[in-house]
């Protein structure tokens, strides 16, 4: 029996992309397997070692009553709990439901909505249980994942920067796509970690790592508006993978098309 710490990987409402990031660490998987015992990871193996687990990686958000109960069990069975990805840390793209009426979605999508048990909000894991480390991103960055696992194994604090994506653009020598090309970019308010991937291929940042430590979304929105980005496009820029975070939620709501003085925030439902 191994004396290595045990690792469990859990899935909630998510696409599995963050778990795949772990499997994509091909060059490091053998080294990792020498340091931890993979005790529960259905995406990778059918073998199950019963808990408790020293380290749990949790992917996905809480969207059903059953999952709201299950996360409590996962927490109870885990030593350190690490949330991985935008779903687990902010509610994910499925948090778009938070801006609408879920019962309307149900009636449009399902023939028998009564069989569907779902919550009216998609919430991050941290809204339900204590989280020890959060890893942002859609998906997470594999270097950050390895940094966290390495740090936990060595008993040190992980290096997870909270500054903006702009730092990474400058570090890698990418010319600012917003200033030089007029490309709408969320980089100035988005947390680093991806290595400034999108600007390096001449795209604006999509904000998939969520808000940076001091996100002045109102100033960025004003800049975007001054560059000619329409109001509804500003709303959509902030309303993607991390729409559930408070800074992005508030900024996107501030740019909703007004349909009346006291109109409830709604998104269009199309079949």
């Amino acid at each position: 029996m191994s004396e290595n710490p045990t690792l469990a990987v859990w899935k909630f409402a998510s696409c599995d992309g963050c778990q795949l990031t772990l499997l994509n660490c091909e060059d490091e998987l053998l080294a990792l397997a020498e340091r931890v015992e993979v005790a529960y990871f259905p995406e990778a193996t059918g073998a199950v070692v019963s808990g408790p687990y020293d380290i749990s990686l949790v992917e996905g958000s809480i969207t059903t009553p059953a999952d709201a109960e299950r996360i409590q069990q996962v927490r109870a069975a885990s030593g350190l709990l690490v949330t991985i990805g935008a779903c687990a840390t902010s509610g994910g793209i499925q948090a778009l439901r938070n801006f609408a009426d879920v019962s309307e979605f149900l009636s449009v999508v399902y023939a028998h909505p009564a069989y569907v048990a779902t919550l009216d909000r998609s919430t991050p894991i941290s809204a339900h249980v204590t989280v020890d480390v959060q890893l942002r991103g859609c998906p997470i960055d594999r270097h950050q994942l390895l940094e966290v696992l390495g740090a936990l194994l060595q008993g040190r604090r992980p290096r997870i920067p909270t500054f903006s994506v702009c730092v990474e653009c400058k570090q890698r020598g990418t010319t600012c796509v917003a200033v030089a090309h007029g490309t709408p970019c969320l980089g100035p308010v988005t947390q680093a970690g991806c290595g400034a991937l999108c600007p390096s291929v001449d795209r604006g940042c999509y904000g998939c790592f969520g808000p940076s430590d001091t996100p002045n979304t109102a100033s960025l929105a004003a800049t975007l508006r001054a560059q000619g980005v329409p109001e509804d496009a500003v709303m959509r820029l902030f309303r993607t993978f991390n729409a559930g975070t408070e800074p992005f939620r508030l900024e996107s709501t501030a740019h909703e098309p007004t349909t009346g003085a006291n109109a409830a925030p709604r998104t269009e439902v199309t079949s």
Binding site: C166, V167, K170, P188, V189, T214, A218, S219, A222
Partner: peptide
């Protein structure tokens, strides 16, 4: 501070 994005670009360049 209302305009500053605290994005660090000024210091980086």
């Amino acid at each position: 501070a209302e305009r500053c994005l605290a994005c660090t670009n000024c210091t980086m360049v």
